[in-house]
Computed example of a mutant assay.
Amino acid sequence: MSLKTLPAKTIPPRGESPAAADRRSEGKSKFRTFRDRYADRTFTIVAMTILLLSIIAVIYPLYFIVIASISDPNAVYEGRVWLFPSGVTLEGYQRILTDGRIWSGLANTMIYTVLGTAISVSTILCGAYALSRKDLPGRKYLMLLFVITMFFDGGLITKYLVVKDLGLLNTVWAVVLPGAIGVWNLIIARSFFENTIPNELREAAQMDGANDFRFFFQMVLPLSKPLIMLMIMVHVVANWNSFFDALIFLNDDSKYPLQLVLRNILIQSDVSSTGTTGGDIASYAAAQRIAELTKYAMIVVSSLPLMIALPFMQKHFTKGMMIGAVK
């Protein structure tokens, strides 16, 4: 014989009727519901306010650079440019886009970006998959060698001597090879393969006659699209913005990437504005005006291609950001 649990009854205090006790209990329940709803609404408002302020703090500097690049520098100095452009002019863009060095630098940057990204992503994927295999001999020692390079570096002089002895100076390989493998990205990719590609899948493929190369190219890579897109996006941004290796290893101006060309143009504009004689105030003001227009326009020109490409890869980039995380 089973016993049924009887619902608990509210025992009214002495001198209080059951109806009054029920009304009091109902009032407390409504108060708790109102309090919880008010707390949720307050949290939502605070969270949305913080998020909105964060978005403004990120977007407004970019917007200001755009409107400042087409505004009169005097208006920018006077603080009249903060929401809308003032004294619209495209002189800065005209001076930059009519310079042949810009188009040469853009072509070089595209070559370095495509070639560097292809080499980096290919080597990282192959190396990370090999390190994720538990049957790889010396797997732990190889990983230890990679990790050591994250904390100890030979320095710039040693790096330059190695590139020089290999005969890579003033070549495209001096830009794309020294930093081809990022150890942190290698660790992320290895963790992804360890947590995503089960050993049972490899054993099933081997039973069907697939060797390691066929399993990697036909099964592992198709299952690793979020990882591949993340690696491509990270290396595209890094190679596009890179200029230090080109500054150290390249001597030919025709091989300079866009970032280095823009840097040289900016330095040239600053030197022209500061090198004017003190008595020629009009010339100094004109040179300073051109330098300011060029500075803002260069930021827009160098950032615009990535800003156009990023939204199209946002879905894969967001999904890939969580790969390799602790679950």
Score class of each variant (00 low, 15 high):
Pro85Ser: 10
Tyr112Pro: 14
Tyr112Leu: 04
Ser86Ile: 11
Arg101His: 13
Leu90Lys: 09
Ile111Leu: 10
Thr109Trp: 00
Trp82Glu: 06
Phe84Thr: 12
Asn108Val: 11
Glu78Tyr: 03
Asp99Met: 04
Thr89Asp: 06
Gly105Cys: 01
Val88Phe: 12
Ser86Asn: 09
Phe84Pro: 01
Ile102His: 02
Tyr112His: 04
Ser104Lys: 15
Asn108Glu: 05
Leu90Ala: 14
Arg80Thr: 11
Pro85Thr: 02
Glu78Asn: 02
Glu91Trp: 03
Thr89Val: 06
Gly87Gln: 05
Ile102Ala: 10
Ser104Phe: 07
Ile102Val: 15
Trp103Met: 02
Gly100Phe: 11
Gly100Ser: 13
Ile111Gly: 05
Val81Met: 03
Thr98Val: 02
Gly87Thr: 08
Glu91Ala: 15
Glu91Gln: 15
Gly105Gln: 01
Pro85Trp: 06
Asp99Asn: 15
Ser104Pro: 02
Ser104Thr: 11
Gly92Cys: 08
Thr109Asp: 00
Trp103Ala: 03
Leu106Ile: 00
Gly100His: 11
Ser86Trp: 04
Gly100Leu: 10
Met110Trp: 00
Ser104Cys: 08
Val81Tyr: 00
Asp99Thr: 10
Ala107Ser: 12
Leu90Trp: 15
Glu91His: 09
Leu83Gln: 07
Leu90Pro: 09
Glu78Ile: 02
Leu90His: 10
Arg80Val: 04
Val88Gln: 06
Ser86Thr: 14
Arg101Thr: 14
Phe84His: 07
Tyr93Ser: 01
Gly87Arg: 05
Val88Ile: 14
Tyr112Glu: 05
Val81Ser: 06
Glu91Met: 13
Leu97Ala: 08
Ile102Tyr: 03
Glu78Ser: 02
Ser86Pro: 01
Ser104Leu: 12
Ser86Asp: 12
Tyr93Leu: 01
Thr98Cys: 05
Pro85Val: 01
Ile102Pro: 04
